[in-house]
């Protein structure tokens, strides 16, 4: 836990910063689940609301930027406070990207034909569930400053990658057999690609959470001597 700061205003600002990040995270999570629902059910209105809500994520990212810069400029934070601010700045950028991927999935939902008879469409929600859970858990790790959970989320990325490979092969063979479905299948390829990227970005957030909590970088932790 961060110790109580002598300057109460500083403490308030850090809390506000974390609140903004969490708000972005919540919006990104909802964007993923709703874009997937829109894709599976073919609901244009739901897709539109996902696209519209992305503006709010963008606005929040700007708020985080401003606040983080203001904190660095006025308070000159040190040690874990500085890590917290830097990590928040980076996480905001990543969450904004995640929101964009979800928005992209929502945009593609209107271009899927023959939803009922399209078998690979059942694989994609399963993949999305894993990616969504990664985002959910990494945000919980951020809220709890839980480095162990962050590390666990990173390990889950392999599952999403495995799913992506399976869906890729599945879709390609589907296209070979039924050339009429190429347009739809190509759209779904991009959807799967977006989900795979969301998984990668969840790992990136996990790295930042780990960094903010421990001061170590997860990537080169193995090479470092124990101290």
């Amino acid at each position: 836990m961060v110790a109580e700061h002598m300057a109460k205003a500083f403490d308030e600002e850090i809390t506000q910063l974390r609140g903004l990040i969490a708000e972005m995270g919540g919006l990104a999570e909802l964007a993923i689940s709703e874009s997937m629902e829109a894709l599976v059910k073919g609901s244009q209105s739901l897709a539109d609301s996902v696209i519209a809500r992305d503006l709010r994520i963008d606005a929040l990212e700007q708020d985080v930027d401003k606040l983080a810069i203001q904190i660095i400029a006025l308070r000159a934070p040190m040690a874990d406070d500085l890590r917290e601010v830097i990590a928040s700045l980076k996480i905001a950028g990543i969450l904004e990207r995640i929101g964009d991927y979800a928005k992209n999935i929502a945009k593609r939902s209107g271009k899927i034909d023959g939803r009922e008879a399209f078998e690979p469409l059942t694989l994609i929600p399963a993949m999305s569930e894993i990616a969504e859970e990664m985002v959910h858990d990494v945000l919980t790790a951020y809220a709890a400053r839980d480095s162990a959970l962050a590390q666990e989320v990173m390990e889950r990325d392999a599952k999403v990658d495995g799913f992506y490979d399976a869906i890729f092969r599945n879709l390609v063979s589907f296209m070979v057999e039924r050339p009429a479905t190429i347009t739809t299948a190509a759209q779904l390829l991009f959807v799967a690609r977006n989900l795979e990227r969301i998984g990668d970005h969840a790992t990136n957030v996990a790295e930042q959470v780990y960094f903010a909590a421990t001061g170590d970088y997860l990537g080169d932790r193995a090479e470092r001597p124990e101290n």
């Binding site: 974390r18 609140g19 903004l20 969490a22 995270g25 919006l27 999570e29 809500r53 809220a143 709890a144």
Partner: peptide
């Protein structure tokens, strides 16, 4: 929701846009 929510901004604990 985890013991960490005490002392935090409620948005950090609840996060969902409707809750916010």
């Amino acid at each position: 929701f985890g013991a960490h929510i005490v002392g935090q901004d409620a948005r950090v604990a609840l996060r969902h846009p409707d809750a916010v």
